[in-house]
Amino acid sequence: MSLGPSQVREIAHLARLTIDGNDIPAYAENLSRILDFVDQLGSAATEGTAPLAHPLEMPQRLRADAVDEEDQRELFQSIAPATQDGLYLVPKVIE
């Protein structure tokens, strides 16, 4: 699987990354090499094998519906880049 520059840009955008134009060829080459490498999987005979999403094949444990978190807004927002009146601020969302 070989990726071209436009695919690299597309994937980067999906992941909200910008790759500098000069670095695109190197990324394209490395990503292609990685994908070529994982393409070995294609040779595995997996018919009839159920996917394994998790090494622990056990059910989800549930939590009782009881409040056990207290307000720590001040602590949490002490490490925030920008806040005002208890709200997180980000650059304007254009809709």
Binding site: A66, V67, D68, E69, D71, R73, Q77, G86, L87, Y88
Partner: peptide
């Protein structure tokens, strides 16, 4: 009473981010 994946309260109308 609480969020689907956390023990924070779900009451409506609390001061911003005090139930996050």
């Amino acid at each position: 009473k609480t969020k689907i994946f956390s023990g924070a309260a779900t009451a409506y109308g609390a001061a911003p981010n005090t139930q996050a």
